[in-house]
Nucleic acid binder design. Structure first.
Lengths: 231, 231
DNA sequence: GTCTATAACGAGATAGAC
DNA sequence: GTCTATCTCGTTATAGAC
């Protein structure tokens, strides 16, 4: 009984994975807006109605792909942080940024799914919020370490942003000073600006040595969140 | 004779504009990937083949929309710069950044067309390159002014990026020091990172006072390109 | 010459009967 | 699950109105 249950579960997992793999393949040449359950089914030799046993709608399949992508890029960031060991916060920052960029360049279509244009007619459910924040949490932890260590220098928060900065710090990083939480939020968006421009081709005929360029820019972002340069 | 020619020209211009307007409307609820010549024609009471008198293909229509969008955001930046008069470079920088952001927030779908995910199966022709650089040119001119004025402070360029920075400066801003050209390119991408996160909803439930947040972040970008803070 | 309309192609999606 | 009839699409050829 439980062996049967186990085999069934295993088959279900495998088929679910196959569906997502095929859907990811179609993301590449059709785009998320044109993801079609029927086409996925056809390519897998199934009939479209069979897919509904695994994903109740196209939107649910999309959500699964989005969650997977956020998880994958988040894991990449976490692994890079773990691999950076006891390096200085500034060095860990650059390592993590570079790893995130590497993931994006290797999987441009999955990157576009989570950081590109919203899919028309689709609104992300709450289930995507957690996975979506994993990269940010890694960045927060690095800056948090720095605040318990070397010390950090940041310009003061202007009066109009005092309450915003307080709220931000309270919600995302209670152990960070408000000025750092504010700077971190901006740096987070700016990091993905660099990656997006590269992945989406805006640097074509502009930046040639993109590895070095990115590392330098990520280093600059470390400045903006107050991570001290190694003496 | 020339009056007839004039009337024809006028009609042609009007219809071309109507086609683009309708296409833009469809961008909003269908997305660029699903822009349909037939649907545009139908909505305009024309037959699809008639559209080919105005746009030789669907991709050419897309290109026209992209060029229009780049031109519009570029003109917005140029107008903001002109309106900023003789203010300090740092203040002009923030003004231009804010104007660009304002355009993007007012026209999220056109923004997505030019700074969002690439349209599958479409490759932008060379004609988009010029309009695409107008915002960057405005930013370059501001920093250029600062270099002829107050003076600027930037960290030195690392050895690996020396030639990249030299080439960048030579190509985009011959009157700027290489370090500034490098920093400007990064700030350019980072600026659109901030805007993209806001337009695409990544700041939802994260940043609440987005006006003040953006102004502060744009101010930080001014730092990163070496514009001096007003004493 | 400039335009619009009709009709058609090949490909693909979709809805429903079976 | 399968089949079919009916939709969509981009694009082209062609004919005729102004």
């Amino acid at each position: 009984m439980s062996a049967v249950r186990g085999a069934r579960e295993r088959a279900r997992t495998e088929i679910t994975a196959a569906i997502k793999d095929e859907a990811r393949r179609q993301l590449a040449d059709q785009g998320a807006a044109n993801l079609s359950l029927r086409a996925v089914a056809r390519e897998l030799g199934m009939v479209s109605s069979a897919l509904y046993r695994y994903f109740p709608s196209r939107d649910e399949l999309l959500t699964a792909l989005i969650v997977d992508a956020y998880d994958a890029i988040g894991e990449t960031a976490e692994a890079a942080l773990a691999g950076a060991g006891r390096a200085a916060p500034r060095s860990r920052w650059v390592t993590v940024c570079t790893a995130v960029r590497g993931w994006a360049l290797a999987r441009p279509h999955e990157y576009a799914l989570i950081y590109g244009s919203p899919v028309p007619g689709y609104t992300a459910p709450g289930a995507t919020v957690g996975p979506a924040s994993r990269v940010a949490l890694v960045l927060i932890s690095i800056v948090g370490d720095a605040y318990r260590g070397d010390g950090v220098a940041l310009p003061p928060v202007p009066a109009v942003l005092r309450s915003e900065a307080d709220r931000l710090a309270a919600e995302i990083a209670p152990d960070l000073p408000p000025a750092a939480a504010l700077a971190l939020t901006a740096a987070w968006a700016q990091l993905f600006g660099l990656i997006t421009f590269e992945v989406f081709g805006q640097f074509k005929q502009v930046v040639t040595d993109r590895d070095a360029f990115f590392e330098r820019a990520a280093d600059g972002l470390a400045d903006s969140v107050g991570l001290l340069r190694r003496e």
